Simulated assay, not measured.
Amino acid sequence: MDKVLPPVGRGGTPVDVFRQVGRCRVLVTNAYHLAVFALSQGIPAVGITASEYYDDNSTAWHRCSGADCAWCI
């Protein structure tokens, strides 16, 4: 079983977050920048949204990633 890492937390740097996201096989998030970090490393990202604002952000992930498909829940 893969080792589970603790959250980066407030003291973490963007590099810390980027590295931790890089350990994922898929990322499920509502945070735009986490999705960008995942997609830039070739890791699929699933966007979970609860408002029209975040629906628009999730759609932007898809357009910017060049992926053939996207899932926004």
Rank of each mutant, 00 (worst) to 15 (best):
V36W: 15
A50Y: 15
D55L: 12
S65R: 07
D55T: 09
C69F: 14
V28C: 03
N30H: 10
G42S: 04
N30A: 11
M1P: 09
C64H: 07
L5A: 08
V8R: 01
Y32C: 02
Y54D: 11
G12W: 05
C24A: 15
A45D: 02
T49I: 13
A38N: 03
D2P: 12
A38L: 00
V4N: 05
L39W: 02
W71K: 06
S51T: 14
A45Y: 00
V46N: 03
D2H: 09
P6A: 09
S40C: 11
L27P: 01
Y54I: 03
Y54P: 00
T59C: 09
T13A: 01
G9Y: 08
G47D: 05
E52F: 06
M1Y: 06
D55H: 12
D56M: 09
D56W: 09
T59M: 13
G47T: 04
R10E: 12
S40M: 14
L39E: 09
C24I: 01
P14L: 02
A38T: 01
A60L: 11
L5V: 04
I48F: 13
F18W: 14
V46M: 06
R10G: 08
H62N: 09
P6W: 07
A70D: 07
D56L: 12
I48Q: 10
A45F: 00
G12H: 04
G22W: 01
S58W: 11
C72W: 14
F18C: 02
V46T: 04
L34V: 04
V36R: 15
G12T: 03
G11D: 12
Y32L: 03
V46F: 11
R23H: 05
Y32T: 05
D68T: 07
H33F: 11
N57L: 15
T49M: 12
C72I: 15
V26T: 11
I73M: 12
C64P: 02
S65V: 02
A38P: 02
W61S: 00
P14F: 02
I48W: 15
S65M: 06
R63W: 14
H33I: 01
E52K: 08
S65E: 06
T13H: 04
D55K: 10
A60G: 04
P7F: 14
M1D: 09
P7M: 13
G11R: 09
H62Q: 13
I73D: 14
P14Y: 05
N57D: 12
Y53P: 01
G12S: 05
T13R: 03
G12F: 03
A50N: 14
V15I: 05
V4Q: 06
A35V: 00
F18M: 05
Q20C: 00
G9F: 07
W71M: 07
F18D: 12
T29L: 00
Y54F: 10
P7L: 15
T59A: 14
V15Q: 11
W71F: 10
Q41G: 04
A60N: 10
V36Y: 15
V17I: 10
T49K: 09
V8T: 01
A60K: 10
C69L: 12
G11A: 08
V8K: 01
I73G: 15
